[in-house]
Design a binder for these strands. Structure first.
Lengths: 183, 183
DNA sequence: TATTGTTATACTCTATAACTATA
DNA sequence: TATAGTTATAGAGTATAACAATA
């Protein structure tokens, strides 16, 4: 998946000597995303699936509406995605007894296993990005990237979770809003 | 465009404390790409268009086949993209007199103007990523990102251009190959 | 009336295979 | 026969609107 190795519109050489950071980030980000995607193929899931499984694992019984907002795939698209995961036996849908409009989504045992398989892949993937740096450099890089993310209004808060109403308050929403505004 | 703010499959919180670099890169890279895309809207072009205009400006009379390889959009897709740019009066197609199968693609005057308009936008975009850092930090970041890119086999060579046969030998080809292998 | 899940539709990018005209 | 450009088709993602069941 990922479906777009953007690289500033496919430019393969540097735009200008002075525009390196944004370009490098774009290039590396695309590479990181597709590399992770590739790693997940051993579990036969996409990065989008992985995000979904993580969310469901963290908040069992979550509704499709909430998942849709969290993952940013749109309420109609989430249907097909969950259909596929359900067909594969990784998730279950149950009608809520307190509100019969809602499907409560949870992981099956097999879903839990697949979820558990994601972490080592993510760790190996992370190592492939940091193995060329020493620990001090990794920290510096993390700090610099974190500051840029913060200055761009992207949330990098580990502890930011799901709010009661299922809205995630920060980064993704911003990104979605920007994207929406761009069209 | 960009059409996918990937973020590791829409995950909005950090995967794990130890997986920060790859995740941050993915997040920032997506943000950088969509931010650039957004900036280009003032010129009414996409990032892909911008890459194309740059290539054409650098190598006037280039064939569609070469453009297709360089930009990585596929020989059939390039047709529609160039059609649109031609309809907008930004590029011209001319049949080559030495090989009448070939369309030589060049910029119109208006195309040159649009191309000239890209640079200030790219500069402003770059500034929006580096303004939170001091010059020394920018250099450090550049160096660290460059090392990661190199260790991942991504070409970051400014001078890498078009080879005689129109193949670009490094980064993009790798990425394309990886992506292809992923399906 | 509003909301959840769902279906249907339209649009865009991708990938592939065929077709044409040239070589 | 091989190649450049083109066309056509199928696939997957996005976005939107409409719908049934439920609140």
């Amino acid at each position: 998946m990922i479906y777009q190795g953007v690289y500033y519109g496919g430019m393969t050489s540097m735009p200008q000597p002075h525009h390196r950071i944004a370009f490098l980030l774009s290039q590396l980000g695309s590479d990181a995303a597709s590399g992770f995607e590739q790693a997940l193929q051993s579990l036969n899931i996409t990065a989008s699936d992985a995000g979904l499984l993580r969310l469901i694992g963290r908040t069992p019984g979550v509704s499709q509406r909430v998942l849709s907002k969290q993952v940013g795939v749109g309420p109609s698209r989430i249907v097909a995605v969950l259909d596929r995961l359900e067909d594969r036996g990784l998730i279950e849908r149950r009608r809520s007894r307190t509100d019969r409009r809602i499907h409560e989504v949870g992981l099956t045992e097999e879903g839990e296993e697949v979820l558990a398989g994601i972490r080592p892949l993510a760790e190996a993937h992370e190592r492939s990005y940091t193995e060329c740096l020493d620990p001090g450099e990794v920290e510096v890089l993390q700090s610099l990237l974190g500051r840029i993310a913060a200055s761009r209004g992207l949330s990098i808060d580990i502890h930011r979770g799901t709010t009661a109403d299922g809205n995630d308050s920060a980064g993704r929403a911003d990104a979605a809003a920007r994207k929406a505004a761009a069209h």
